[in-house]
């Protein structure tokens, strides 16, 4: 280990802190300028990449040779901000990635659109939906009870009804989006005209908590190549275009830069004090 004039308080522990949170190791060593510089530059680059890529560019997938996320080997070095990707991929039950999986009842806010058989009742709909398995031991056959407000051409009306079991689709519990899409056939009644049954297609979403969306893996398993199935990865590329690659590059560079910061916390700067490169070219002025 080279001698350094910069006091490196407990270098191994500092390096661990620097790995976990960029800049934290230097903060521990009381090297404040560097702590701020590393934190702003590395975390700023990482989260900018995440924003550009709509939160879908950092995830871990090591299932088969063609689906491995080699980019994560670089992103990993950002530390804590990138580690949830490992947990999402490795610690989750495979059922959490299943479409239409609803093992136990849940109530959530819903926002979407109703396309009714009679156009009088077409319009945006928002309210509360309770989802539950239609029958015990059949978690993939769900039903829902919606209660909310429908915006019709004549104004808002209170509406209540059910989503027909097996008629629609519900996104997986874990996916890299804050919106969990839900669709199905709806049958309900309004408070103004309780004797009129409204039928139609319901499309919308319920919120997905951050612990189910942050760095969740993009599934790339195509059920049927010839049917033109879109996987999560296909959809992300289609929606984001070059922003997907841009986000990947930003987050990868952030991880690689933190390797330099970790090494700096462990060993100190490469050119320290008198050893600094170019010291002869930049002489210190003589005292007057």
């Amino acid at each position: 280990m080279p001698q350094t004039r910069v006091p490196l308080k407990d270098p191994m522990f500092s390096a661990l802190l620097a790995f976990l949170v960029p800049g934290l190791g230097h903060f521990y060593q009381r090297r404040m300028f560097k702590a701020v510089l590393y934190a702003v530059c590395i975390l700023g680059t990482f989260f900018t990449g995440m924003r550009i890529g709509h939160g879908q560019v950092v995830y871990f997938n090591w299932q088969s040779t063609e689906n491995r996320t080699y980019a994560y080997l670089c992103q990993f070095w950002v530390g804590l901000p990138a580690l949830p990707a490992l947990a999402q991929a490795e610690l989750r039950s495979s059922r959490a990635f299943d479409v239409n999986y609803m093992p136990k009842p849940m109530t959530s806010q819903f926002a979407g659109k109703l396309t009714a058989e009679t156009s009088d009742f077409d319009g945006p709909i928002a309210g509360s939906i309770t989802l539950r398995p239609h029958e015990l031991n059949m978690p993939h056959l769900w039903t829902g009870k919606l209660s909310g407000e429908l915006q019709t051409a004549k104004g808002p009306v209170k509406i209540e009804g059910d989503v027909t079991p097996g008629s629609g689709s519900l996104d997986p519990e874990v996916a890299p989006s804050e919106k969990r899409r839900l669709s199905g056939t709806f049958e309900g009644r309004t408070s103004e005209q309780p004797d009129v049954v409204i039928r139609g297609g319901l499309e919308g979403h319920i919120p997905r908590p951050i612990w189910n969306s942050y760095e969740a893996p993009l599934r790339d398993l195509r059920v049927n190549d010839f049917a033109g199935d879109q996987t999560d990865l296909d959809r992300a590329h289609f929606l984001l275009g070059s922003r997907f690659e841009l986000g990947v590059v930003f987050t990868m560079i952030a991880g690689l830069l933190n390797i330099l910061a970790i090494y700096d916390a462990l060993e100190g700067p490469a050119y320290d004090g008198e050893e600094e490169e170019g010291a002869a070219a930049e002489p210190t002025p003589a005292p007057a």
Partner: peptide, 28 residues
């Protein structure tokens, strides 16, 4: 144009690389 995204990356890479080489803020 996407090429402008290179500018902040160049600045960030230069700052972090220089910070790993030197200790004095003005020199960094």
């Amino acid at each position: 144009p996407r090429i402008w995204f290179a500018v902040p990356l160049i600045v960030v890479i230069s700052l972090v690389y220089s910070a790993s080489r030197y200790e004095a803020p003005d020199r960094i």
